[in-house]
């Protein structure tokens, strides 16, 4: 799947995006794109603007200038839930699950993203409700199996271990049926064995036809799993290329030198 030679359609284009918070320019004329079916890594030191980039893409923030095009649609001013319905889903760096809902219901909420079931469908238990509910349930159970937390489906999300919460976030995002899955530091706090399993999971997700955008501090993980990498520093894109190219890029090495690294853990 990951043959880099064949030119593929860009699924997401970030085009000259700038965003300012008061005097701080969190993203400064950043452009890159993500091709269909690839795993793109987005890296950079703390505060480089990676999460902000996610937030602009998913409609949490409006870019000060520039625009984001997803699957042919310019996202400017589009409501956040509509962006999700277009096929972009994300996880959160600081986990944001629906804590007092069950694990299964968390995923079901994601699976409802494309549901056409109305209040009256639910009240009168129409065939549409039943069909959609059955599909959502099957989908949710599948995803729980894929991320490996099936046994805990009836547990409250709040009661999961930290790692399982991260897995649940991935399952919930995947349940929305995205074309592009954006993962914001999914391995934060994982031990090496868990990271290994996460890498496998990400590859598997890609093999199922998803495109993946991955923010990650752990260089080994990023280098091992991504097809291409975009590097941000102080809101600017300083490099872009294959893992091998990035590894040898002097600008990247400089950016990471002396920076208090997370990936030591």
């Amino acid at each position: 799947m990951s043959e880099n030679a064949t030119p593929r359609k860009a699924l997401l284009e970030v085009d000259d995006v700038t965003i300012r918070f008061g005097g701080l320019t969190a993203l400064d004329s950043v452009s890159f794109d993500i091709k269909e079916g690839e795993i793109l890594g987005l890296i950079g030191p703390n505060g480089a603007g990676k999460t902000t980039c996610f937030n602009v893409m998913t409609g949490v923030y409006q870019a000060t200038s520039g625009h984001v095009r997803f699957d042919g649609t310019v996202l400017r001013k589009l409501k956040r839930h509509k962006i999700t319905k277009l096929g972009m889903a994300r996880t959160f760096q600081n986990i944001r699950l629906f804590k007092s809902m069950t694990v299964l219901d968390n995923v079901m909420v994601g699976a409802d993203a494309h549901s056409k079931v109305s209040f009256f469908d639910a009240l009168f238990r129409t065939p549409r409700h039943r069909r959609t509910e059955a599909e959502a349930l099957a989908r949710a159970k599948d995803l729980l199996k894929i991320v490996g937390i099936t046994a805990r489906h009836d547990e409250l999300a709040a009661n999961l271990s930290y790692g399982d919460q991260r897995r649940l976030e991935i399952a919930r995002a995947m349940a929305t049926g995205p074309k592009l899955l954006c993962l914001d530091e999914p391995a934060a706090g994982f031990n090496p064995a868990e990271k290994q399993r996460l890498m496998q999971l990400i590859r598997r997700v890609r093999d199922e036809g998803y495109t993946v955008l991955l923010i990650e501090h752990d260089m080994r993980l990023v280098m091992g799993v991504t097809d291409r990498i975009v590097v941000l520093e102080f809101g600017k894109k300083i490099a872009e290329g294959t893992p091998a190219e990035i590894r040898d890029n002097p600008a990247v090495i400089a950016a990471y030198l002396g920076v208090d690294e997370d990936d030591a853990s």
């Binding site: 839930h81 319905k85 959160f92 699950l97 629906f98 804590k99 809902m101 409802d112 993203a113 995002a173």
Partner: peptide, 18 residues
């Protein structure tokens, strides 16, 4: 589910398509 998700975390709910 949409009600509960909204109650739990409105932003996250919105970003999950609610």
């Amino acid at each position: 589910r949409a009600w509960e998700a909204t109650r739990e975390d409105e932003d996250a709910a919105e970003l999950m398509g609610v």
